[in-house]
C-alpha cells in the first residue's frame, strides 16, 4: 500500500480549501509561493488569517514504509480558524488528508504533556501554541535529541528512565496512620515553594532543548532534577532523606552539569523556573558540603 494520497474526500460539513495541494515535498519553494509568499507574516494581523489556509510542513518518517524510511517533509494546507493551535492543524491534516500522519496527543489542554513538538525551531506544546502566533509556513518536527519512532512520535523511554532515577516518590517514614485522619502539616510558604515544581507534565520539551543533555546521555536533565527539587524542598520529608536526594543530584551527571543556559526554562510550557531550581539545588549541595565535581 502506498502512502501517496488521492485527492482527499472532503466531508460535507467541512469548508474545503480551494487548492488543497497537500502533498509535494519535492518543491518546497513553489509551495511557499503558492501559500502567498507570506513567510514572514506574523501575528500582528491575526484577523487577516480568517478564511485563509496556512501551510504546514510536517516531518515524516516510518521505518517500515518504503517511501518514508528516508525522513522527508510533507506539506499540508490547513484552513485557518480563529484559535487554531498547532495540534488542531496536524489533527486537521490527519483527519482530512492523510490518516497515517502520526503524533501523540490526548487532553488538548496542556496537562497530559503528550504533544511537545519542535515547531519553527523551538520546543513547544502543540495544543498550547496558536497558529496565528507563528511565522508561516509552520515547520513541525519531532523533539530533537530523541530517537524518532514515527513522524512526530519520539521514544520517551530515556526521559522516563531519568525521571525514575531521582526516586520520584515521597519517602517520609514517620507519617501518622491515615485512619487517624491526621494529615501532616505543611506551611503555606512551603507549599508555595514547591508549587511551580509540581506543575511538570513530563512533556520532555526541556530535556530536548538542553545542549548538555544532548552531549551527555547520562545527565539527569532539567525535568528529573526539577522532580527531585519538588521532594527535596518539601518540608514533609525529613533531613536524612533530603540529604539522600542531594547525593543523587550532585553526582557526576547531576546538577553540576548544568551550564545555566536557561534553554529549558525558556521552552517549559508550564513556566517552571527550571534553571533556578537547578541552581538552588547546587547551593544546597554546597551548604551540605557534598562533594563538588
Amino acid at each position: 500500500m502506498s502512502t501517496q494520497q488521492q485527492e482527499p474526500e472532503q466531508p460535507e460539513s467541512q469548508e474545503a480549501p480551494e487548492d488543497p495541494e497537500m502533498r509535494g515535498a519535492e518543491s518546497p519553494v513553489d509551495e511557499r509561493e503558492k501559500a502567498g509568499g507570506d513567510i514572514d507574516q506574523t501575528t500582528a494581523d491575526r484577523s487577516e488569517l480568517e478564511g485563509e489556509t496556512i501551510l504546514i510542513k510536517v516531518f515524516r518518517y516510518d521505518p517500515e514504509v518504503a517511501d518514508k524510511q528516508e525522513p522527508r517533509f510533507d506539506e499540508f494546507h490547513v484552513p485557518f480558524e480563529k484559535g487554531m493551535t498547532v495540534l488542531d492543524a496536524v489533527m486537521y491534516a490527519r483527519d482530512n488528508y492523510d490518516s497515517s500522519l502520526t503524533f501523540r496527543h490526548s487532553c488538548r489542554q496542556a496537562v497530559c504533556g503528550s504533544d511537545a513538538f519542535f515547531v519553527n525551531g523551538k520546543q513547544r506544546l502543540g495544543c498550547k501554541t496558536q497558529m496565528a502566533d507563528l511565522e508561516h509556513p509552520v515547520r513541525i518536527e519531532p523533539l530533537p535529541h530523541q530517537e524518532v519512532v514515527k513522524d512526530l512520535v519520539v521514544d520517551m523511554d530515556h526521559f522516563y528512565d531519568q525521571m525514575h532515577t531521582v526516586e520520584p516518590y515521597f519517602q517520609s517514614e514517620d507519617t501518622p496512620d491515615a485512619s487517624d485522619l491526621e494529615e501532616q502539616r505543611q506551611s503555606r510558604e512551603n507549599r508555595e515553594k514547591v508549587k511551580m515544581s509540581t506543575r511538570c507534565i513530563w512533556c520532555g520539551a526541556c530535556m530536548s532543548s538542553c545542549n548538555i543533555a544532548a552531549g551527555d546521555n547520562e545527565y539527569l536533565g532539567p525535568a528529573a532534577i526539577n522532580k527531585a527539587y519538588r521532594f527535596a524542598m518539601d518540608d514533609r520529608e525529613d533531613a536524612d532523606i533530603k540529604e539522600h536526594r542531594l547525593r543523587i543530584l550532585e553526582q557526576e551527571h547531576g546538577v553540576w552539569r548544568c551550564q545555566t543556559q536557561f534553554s529549558c526554562t525558556e521552552v517549559c510550557p508550564k513556566d517552571i523556573p527550571l534553571t533556578e531550581h537547578i541552581q538552588e539545588l547546587k547551593r544546597e549541595a554546597v551548604k551540605k558540603n557534598l562533594k563538588f565535581w
Binding site: S172, T175, E183, Q186, R236
Partner: peptide, 21 residues
C-alpha cells in the same frame, strides 16, 4: 476521608490553611 489523607501522606501538594492543614 481516610483515602484522601492517604494521598496527603504520599506527598500530594494540597492547598493549605494558615495552620498547615
Amino acid at each position: 476521608p481516610e483515602d484522601t489523607i492517604t494521598l496527603e501522606h504520599w506527598g500530594m501538594p494540597f492547598s493549605r490553611e494558615e495552620d498547615g492543614r
